[in-house]
């Protein structure tokens, strides 16, 4: 790695992270349901070669269950952050290009949404929509767009005041044409990086809401469910059932966060040349 330049190192690192994430996700999806069927013969076993994460009180393999749970959480996280990012783009552009009144209204709304703790808001929305996957998705998607929307609003305002946009207008181009050709291409890096950095938030909220029992149903092996079940047994000495799935969640979240930072470095044309 030493004799490669920094940009190459970052690209290799980013590719490596992406592969890990995709591997965890697809492996989790491919695990059949009967692979995690319990057997009381193998209940409450500490980590071993046969069961790297040990087993739970029902004798289910925790490693496979964690992977399966991660896949579910990642699906929710990806979908929710995508919807959130798209909302952010629309709201951000509307605020920046709309009238003063629209801008003030949107800013007020963003303040309101950001003023309520996200967990509570997600629980309320998810509850109102009858819990389950759909409620959770909508809940997370509806609460996570605010900061990205603000960022995009600022970016568009700054772009609109550029001289080349003014010139374009005087060359007879319409507002829509300018939006598509001058403004949107500049927003792509913001959008992609914003989307990826939303993901860790989404997945953590999914886990915490499920943990509290307001999210996914207990039969779905989501990370939050696994953690919440293991709480009942942690006093009996089954430390592995909480610590290992929890650590996995933290690692995946950190990985995605770092991935977003790296992508920002690659996509920013003004990033350091050294």
């Amino acid at each position: 790695m030493r004799n490669l330049n920094r940009r190459t190192q970052v690209v290799i690192l980013t590719a490596f992270m992406t592969i890990i994430l995709i591997a965890v996700f697809s492996f989790g999806l491919l695990i059949p349901d009967d692979a995690v069927v319990g057997s009381f013969l193998s209940a409450k076993q500490p980590p071993s070669l046969a069961h790297p994460f040990g087993t739970d009180a029902l004798g289910r393999d925790l490693f496979l269950r964690t992977l399966k749970g991660m896949a579910v959480s990642m699906t929710v996280g990806t979908a929710a952050s995508m919807i959130s990012a798209v909302i952010a783009v629309f709201v951000g552009i509307a605020a920046a290009t709309g009238s003063k009144c629209v801008d003030a209204l949107i800013n007020w709304f963003i303040d309101v949404v950001m003023g309520v703790p996200h967990t509570i808001l997600v629980i309320l929305i998810s509850f109102a929509l009858g819990r389950g996957l759909k409620g959770l998705l909508v809940g997370i998607a509806a609460t996570h767009w605010c900061s990205l929307a603000r960022l995009i609003r600022g970016e568009v305002l700054q772009l609109r005041s550029q001289q080349y946009v003014a010139v374009s207008r005087k060359l007879g181009k319409s507002g829509g044409w300018i939006l598509v050709h001058h403004l949107l291409p500049h927003l792509v890096p913001q959008f992609v990086v914003g989307l990826i950095l939303l993901f860790p938030h989404a997945i953590l909220h999914e886990a915490s809401v499920s943990f509290l029992g307001f999210g996914l149903p207990p039969e779905q092996p989501a990370i939050g469910i696994i953690l919440s079940e293991s709480m009942r047994y942690i006093q009996t000495g089954m430390w592995w059932s909480a610590v290992l799935p929890g650590l996995t969640l933290v690692l995946i979240v950190l990985l995605v966060d770092k991935l977003g930072d790296n992508l920002r470095m690659i996509m920013d044309p003004y990033s350091a040349q050294d």
């Binding site: 330049n5 940009r7 190459t8 690209v11 040349q273």
Partner: peptide
């Protein structure tokens, strides 16, 4: 002289 990224990953 300046070390610059040229195309892609080449400096």
């Amino acid at each position: 002289s300046f070390r610059m990224y040229d195309h892609g990953l080449e400096q």
